[in-house]
Amino acid sequence: MMTSAGARGNLLLALGGAVVASMPLWAMPYHVQLASTALIGGMFALSLQLLVGATGLVSLAHGAFFGLGSYAVYLLSQALGGAPSVFLSLPGAMLLAGTAAAMVGALALRTQGFFFLMTTLAFGQMLFFLFHDTPIGGGMDGVFIPRPDLIWPVPKAWRAPVFLWLNLGVLAAMYAGLWALMRTMFGHALLGIRANESRMRAMGHDVQRLKLAAFILAGALAGAAGHMAALTDAFVSPELLGWHRSAEALLMVLLGGIGALHGPILGAIALTTIQELGHLITERQKLVEGLAILLAVLLLRHGLAGRSK
């Protein structure tokens, strides 16, 4: 059963958040940006935890919903002829990603296990090809986009810290929301499905509908993460939708531990650090990442957040 950090754990998370928030005071701008990347990874992996840790669904389409959230900013800016307000682009990104998740989920959830993996992979790649092979997303090389307008214009020198705080805020809101959600009867039903789907059905739970609801919500949250990536980087490319991103998010979940709600946040920080270290010591980043995954899969059975029970 998935645990959430208790009062002490949440206090530690808040402390960690405060340290991250203070980074602009003591860290180099490059590392502040890197922290933003890790926070966005945390949002993305956290949204996936709703499927993997809570419901027991391993989806390879999740990267596509992340990418759709990013591209929502591009599509809105094209439609409006300029930068959209963040109050429009964030809900827009979640709506677009959530709608896509509803369609993919309605089909993929008709299958189970290995089939579910394959269908989510295939539909995710379909969305990738849609942006890679057709001009609707500005082409296969990606495109620079105008950043959504915040309430006040952000001077260039303040961008890195402001985006860091913004990303921290969104991640905190997402975590708080999911923490509360897992305490509702809906959350308990998802945990029941993960524990024993056939029994849940025999009890009279509409398992398909519960799974679809989780899939849509997780997709919309991934879209929010993608939106924050677009806002932070001012650039979108089809790679954002690819299944390698889904695999990376799964890795963050595994690194952090599928037994704990806050695991993916730790996993995202760990993976970003590993990738950055890999970058520093060698040019062979895939080697470092591949070996890190291998070690994680072979040795780290319960993740950084520890055993769930």
């Binding site: 029941g192 849940m200 739970h205």
Partner: peptide, 21 residues
Amino acid sequence: NVMRGMTVRENARLGTQAATV
């Protein structure tokens, strides 16, 4: 065929929840 990782009460409660909520 029960949820072994949940408490006895939670197992029964999910049974009621399925029928009522």
